[in-house]
């Protein structure tokens, strides 16, 4: 029982960083919040809406995403997010770090 809580907390910390990278990687083409949520979930990463939406705003405030309100297919305005130039540069570095880190970790854990 006690361990469950520990595991939950550590997973939460682990996921926090991962989700940001996942979001950046999926926004090379623009998405609105809900379509991004679907895209992530289709690829196997379940994210809470209450986590994803504030995260999108934070990434935009950091200059890694751009967004604007637009009326696309339906008559409902939505906020569309897409990765910025700075975001692309950051993502490239993160990707590199990620592959080093996962290689190291799988070596350690095997």
């Amino acid at each position: 029982m006690e361990n469950d809580e520990l595991v939950q907390n550590m997973l939460l910390e682990l996921r926090r960083g991962v989700i940001s990278i996942a979001v950046l990687s999926q926004l090379s083409k623009e998405e609105y919040g809900y379509s991004l949520l679907k895209a992530l979930s289709d690829k196997g990463l379940e994210v809470d809406q209450s986590t994803l939406y504030p995260l999108l705003r934070r990434l935009e405030a950091q200059g890694l995403l751009q967004s604007d309100w637009r009326i696309a297919d339906e008559a409902r305005p939505r906020r569309y997010y897409v990765i910025s130039t700075q975001g692309k540069a950051v993502l490239a570095k993160l990707k590199k770090e990620w592959s080093t880190m996962t290689a190291t970790m799988s070596q350690m854990l095997s």
């Binding site: 609105y32 919040g33 809900y34 809406q49 939406y53 409902r76 305005p77 939505r78 906020r79």
Partner: peptide, 15 residues
């Protein structure tokens, strides 16, 4: 933020 939450909620309700 309110507008964004509203549009997200409407998307979810549609679904």
């Amino acid at each position: 933020i309110e507008a964004e939450i509203r549009s997200m909620l409407e998307d979810m309700v549609d679904e």
